[in-house]
Design a binder for these strands. Structure first.
Lengths: 212, 212
DNA sequence: CGCGTGCTTGATCCCAATCAAGACATGTGG
DNA sequence: CCACATGTCTTGATTGGGATCAAGCACGCG
């Protein structure tokens, strides 16, 4: 929607920071290509990954009122990012009456997503968490026209672990078990989902991993 | 901010539903008095409490674009709720140019709050969670002009447990330990915080409960 | 080639869940 | 006013899922 109006692209390389928690938020960021991880940092320094973001996603929306970024964003691979100054955005909103509502909608969707995430962290066991992770990722790749069955992970095991509130070793073990149970094929970062339906059942707690 | 413009109040009694997840969201809700619990429900039926809300809080903002409620709200006690139709809200936005930005700001704050909650659920142990819970509640009472040291819990132990991603029994045990360690005084639902600073230290992981 | 980072695997431990029972408060109908 | 039911909370005993500790492995890169 914004593409036509703005075209300030920026190429970033793996592990480059896009924006930092605590700094003034002057832009929102649209991912054009690549992948991004967002995370919050607690006072004591430990961080929680909030999400992995793909092309088409918009970041930094929650600091819209010229406020402060409540999370940080970092690239997981070479990426092109489109920066849209919030000032520009506000001006555009005047020109395009529908835009402001769209922003409200996107923010609302972000909140819904957070709710789902809260539910997952609080109520799901490790098996479910990983199944949910793979299922979501697969779905999101699909929406972008990529294969839902085969994809490359851009993030490390450790980052997945952090995202799901688990230990690194647990992720390793789980991936191994998913492989043993013929739910997926794995080769380092490349994942092939074999038993999609089963995966969904595990994600939703309808069956357990060792029942498979 | 909206008070002047609208005055459709409604009195609800304990355990009354205000809005339901999955239904069309036609209103936002401002709490005038009482207390409200919001929660999401998963497909399999289990629910996750998202927050406990006090007078002055606004609920239902995330369905602004005439969409669907992504959580449910239920009163914890007799409450007066002010309903503001989203249509009215959109009209008001045209009259009052600052309002739309305010809405964006409130939504942004909600997202920041969710991030904090994600971090808590994923990274904190049970002691920290309860300390965070008490500290936050205390702070929020303070902002509303009530005592930060003494207050009544409107929710059950079980609801606290659900909110923090713990078992009911764990909450009972923790409250007992907090009492033993002279951090709080308890009498059923009435809480008095004795060692505020210690509580904060525990919340932030700077010290453990049995060091106290 | 050698080093470092990321990943895997094994052994052990511990925090919080679960199971179980009882205590206390509140409400309800006789 | 009491007997009883019900929901809430507490406390104890036991279990178990995932964390932690500790090596070793595999790949990529200078």
């Amino acid at each position: 929607m914004l593409d036509a109006s703005i075209s300030k692209y920026k190429t970033l390389y793996k592990a480059d920071a896009i924006f930092h928690q605590g700094t003034e938020s002057s832009c929102i960021y649209a991912i054009r290509s690549g992948a991004v991880r967002t995370y919050t940092t607690a006072k004591n320094g430990d961080q929680q990954t909030l999400g992995f973001h793909l092309p088409g996603d918009i970041l930094g929306l929650n600091g819209l009122d010229n406020k402060i970024h409540s999370c940080s964003g970092v690239t997981l691979a070479t990426s092109t990012i489109c920066e849209i100054p919030i000032k520009t955005l506000h001006m555009l909103c005047i020109k395009m009456p529908g835009l402001q509502r769209q922003l409200l909608r996107v923010l609302g969707e972000e909140i819904s997503k957070d709710y789902t995430m809260l539910l997952m962290l609080a109520r799901c066991n490790a098996d479910q968490k990983l199944a949910i992770f793979f299922t979501n990722l697969s779905e999101r790749f699909g929406k972008r026209g990529f294969s839902t069955r085969e994809f490359e992970l851009t993030m490390t095991r450790s980052e997945i672990a952090n995202y799901l509130g688990l230990a690194d070793e647990t992720i390793s073990r789980l991936i191994a078990r998913f492989k043993d149970k013929k739910l997926i094929q794995v080769q380092r970062k490349s994942i092939k989902i074999i038993a999609k339906q089963r995966m969904i059942e595990i994600a939703e707690g309808e069956c357990t991993l060792d029942e498979v």
